[in-house]
């Protein structure tokens, strides 16, 4: 399978990426990491992602999504024939509520590609 994994640099997203790569190692899935940020520092997130991939010794392609990451994720997944979009399934608020950010909501509502949320 070809997976595109959206990573925003949050702790949850990095944990999700780790889960994806360790699973892909067994299944042989092809992984593309789509890096985006909520505060303009895509380069920092990309750096963190590349370090984690290197440390895990996992071969994945990395792309950055600058504007409208949600729209781009949906679009790229469709036009480039990915089988699945993978995202981390929401953050926890201080008192434990699950919070789904706007990227996640847009992708869930608009993707024709199957979406997996990792919690």
């Amino acid at each position: 399978m070809r997976l595109i994994v959206g990573v925003d640099g949050s702790e949850d997203a990095m944990t999700a990426l780790e889960a994806v790569t360790s699973r892909a190692r067994e299944t042989g899935d092809e992984v593309t990491v789509a890096v985006y940020s909520h505060n303009d520092s895509t380069a920092d997130v990309e750096h963190t992602v590349r370090e984690q991939l290197l440390a895990a010794d996992f071969d994945a392609s990395v792309m950055t999504l600058e504007d409208d990451p949600a729209g781009q994720l949906v679009d790229i997944a469709e036009t480039e024939g990915y089988d699945r979009i993978v995202l981390s399934g929401g953050h926890r608020s201080p008192l434990g509520k699950i919070q789904l950010d706007s990227v996640l909501e847009f992708v869930l509502l608009n993707a024709h590609t199957t979406v997996t949320l990792i919690r």
Binding site: S93, L95, G96, K97, Q99
Partner: peptide, 19 residues
């Protein structure tokens, strides 16, 4: 609401520790 309170007693205790 948004995943809380959790559904099992064990998870409820863990959550209340934070709260």
């Amino acid at each position: 609401a948004q995943g809380i309170p959790p559904s099992t007693e064990t998870a409820i205790r863990k959550w209340l520790d934070v709260v």
